[in-house]
Nucleic acid binder design. Structure first.
Length: 400
RNA sequence: GGCGAGGUAGCGAAGCGGUCAAACGCAGCAGACUGUAAAUCUGUCGCCCCAGCGGCUUCGGAGGUUCGAAUCCUCCCCUCGCCA
């Protein structure tokens, strides 16, 4: 995949740096780990420090000291994850800021403008992501929403662990609206490309920015097909599969990927948004995916879970208190080369910041190395063997 | 030696006649986490078990009052503070 800031080998994994930083690690760490592209978030960077500020500072790459490719998500995921504090209508999404409670409207056009100012190499269109997890009442809150001014839940409240079904209605509405929004986003970007003077309030900091459309449609293959058709009619540099890994059973996710990916152009990267566990990566590569991002390696690292060649390892468990072996004996990362489980457990238990850093370095290494191995296996014809290996190591998690 | 305050589960700390195996916090133990409101959240947390509105032993110690005591009374032990 060729971008203004360099080439990305695919299949690729993008570490998530929502607010302009991959939590707990430095840009140099990421370079050393071999990360070729990272992800940033429109919604978060718009709220702080603001896209205009970043534009005035020369764009996101310069601002964060990362000169390799960046993909920015549109804020579509926040439409989903902040369900309790936003309202959606055809125009766009109105958010109650999670930082200070202020109201903000994110429209498809605005999401394009913000990303133009950020100057990422790949901009995502604003979409409406739906799934079983966040909304307390997904069946209706997705479209109606209550007044975002009053419905304020606190981070700790964790509203939606319970899995409910996404009604076909809701999935269709979200899919159709996403397609409308995609159309508007494309129109906006083309205008910025062709006649930037006509939009003086936007500083385009990366003229070579690509724009990806996003396929929605929930867990219904028919809706997915429709979404592919509508989105490809508009025409984007490439396409992403959204609305998965949002609480549905993993097998359903696999099936939808298997259905959807082959419908997308084979000569363009197919991006599966927000996935997944290590075995999900290889399973979805097998189904045609080229690009991934996921907070799992970094978040789980901070929460004490290491992903290793032997499977998940919860470093905080008491059994590692005096275990002087490395987290993963087969891993060559900085953490595994230098530190023991006993020490890493201690760092976690006492809450040292280094814990987050060392755990994150390991997990990111594991993810990036997994992608390297997948690429090699494809070239050398050992893909199925590698796939079996991952399947055995990360055997199916129990489904709800 | 005198006066005062207090001794509750690993620690801190509520409770002051029944609904108390005892709130809450911490520590401990386990789990969750998938386009990051997350260095977060959830469960568990006296002992036993066939895990139940189950059994057993608890609230410094010993007696007592009461149908019933962590809660009331008596004596004792021990901490801390002030004064000698």
């Amino acid at each position: 995949m060729v971008t203004p800031h360099g080439v990305v080998q695919t299949p690729a994994f993008m570490p998530v740096g929502t607010r302009g930083a991959v939590k707990a690690v430095t840009a140099r760490d990421l370079e050393d780990l071999g990360a070729e592209i990272i992800l940033g978030n429109t919604y978060h960077l718009y709220l702080k420090p603001g896209d205009s500020l970043i534009a005035r500072c020369g764009g996101l790459h310069k601002f964060i000291g990362w000169n390799r490719p960046i993909l920015t998500d549109s804020g579509g995921y926040q439409v989903f994850s902040l369900a309790a504090m936003r309202r959606i209508d055809d125009e766009g999404a109105t958010f109650r800021s999670h930082l200070d409670g202020s109201l903000h409207q994110l429209t498809p056009e605005r999401a394009v403008d913000i990303q133009a100012q950020l100057g990422s190499d790949i901009a995502m269109v604003l979409d409406e992501c739906v799934g079983p997890r966040p909304g307390s009442d997904p069946g209706c809150s997705l479209t109606q929403g209550s007044d975002p001014g009053r419905s304020f839940t606190h981070p700790g409240s964790d509203p939606g662990r319970s899995v409910t079904h996404i009604s076909a209605d809701v999935a269709r509405t979200a899919m159709e609206r996403s397609a409308e929004w995609a159309q508007r986003a494309r129109r906006r970007l083309l205008r910025l490309r062709e006649d930037p003077e006509s939009v003086p309030e936007v500083i385009v900091t990366n003229p070579g920015q690509a724009q990806f459309g996003i396929i929605q449609g929930g867990t219904d293959p028919g809706l997915r097909s429709e979404s592919v058709q509508k989105t490809m009619e508009i025409g984007f540099e490439a396409y992403a599969i959204g609305g998965l890994s949002v609480g549905e059973p993993v097998d359903v996710m696999y099936d939808i990927v298997a259905h959807t990916a082959p419908l997308l152009p084979g000569d363009r990267p197919r991006y599966l948004m927000g996935t997944g566990m290590p075995d999900d990566l290889i399973e979805c590569v097998a189904r045609g995916v080229d690009l991934f991002d996921c907070v799992l390696p970094t978040r789980n690292a901070r929460n004490g879970q290491l992903l290793t060649s032997r499977g998940p390892l919860v470093i905080k468990n008491a059994r590692y208190a005096e275990d002087m072996s490395p987290p993963d004996p087969d891993c060559g990362c900085y953490t595994c080369r230098h530190f023991s489980r006993a020490y890493l457990r201690h760092l976690f238990v006492v809450g040292e910041m280094t814990s987050a850093t060392l755990n994150s370095l390991h997990n990111l290494h594991f993810y990036l190395d997994t992608m390297r191995r997948i690429r090699e296996a494809i070239v050398f014809g050992s893909f199925e063997k590698l796939r079996r290996e991952f399947h055995q190591t990360f055997s199916r998690r129990p489904q709800i």
